[in-house]
């Protein structure tokens, strides 16, 4: 995979998730960061740090991005959410416009 097709999402603890740019763009917030020219350093480096999102939640969010792409292509499976993650996940989803 070419570097410019991926993006690195970094959690509060510094854990890095390298995922397809296409998947990350499911989030309106990340899409804005990556596509508005000049205004974000993220655009250049293909890296976004989320100091408020912990690793567990960010991993779940990355899973959702991929699930969402599958769903859009017709594979309508269920997305499992662990009950204990729901509230934190919600806050992150709200921030990410996802």
């Amino acid at each position: 995979m070419k570097k410019e097709d991926t993006v690195k999402l970094i959690s509060a603890e510094g854990f890095e998730f390298v995922i397809d740019k296409k998947a990350a763009m499911v989030s309106q917030t990340i899409r804005n960061m990556l596509t508005s020219p000049g205004s974000f350093a993220e655009t250049e480096h293909g890296e976004v740090t989320f100091p408020e999102i912990n690793t567990t939640i960010l991993e779940k969010i990355c899973q959702y991005f991929y699930w969402s792409l599958q769903y859009a292509s017709g594979k309508e499976t269920e997305f499992h959410i662990e009950p204990e993650l729901t509230l934190e996940l919600m806050m992150a989803a709200n921030y990410l416009h996802t």
């Binding site: 959702y64 969402s68 769903y71 959410i81 729901t86 509230l87 919600m90 989803a93 990410l96 996802t98």
Partner: peptide, 13 residues
């Protein structure tokens, strides 16, 4: 149309 993560969390709750 694909449910947003927000929607899914609300269903879950």
């Amino acid at each position: 149309s694909c449910p947003s993560l927000m929607d899914l969390c609300i269903y879950k709750i």
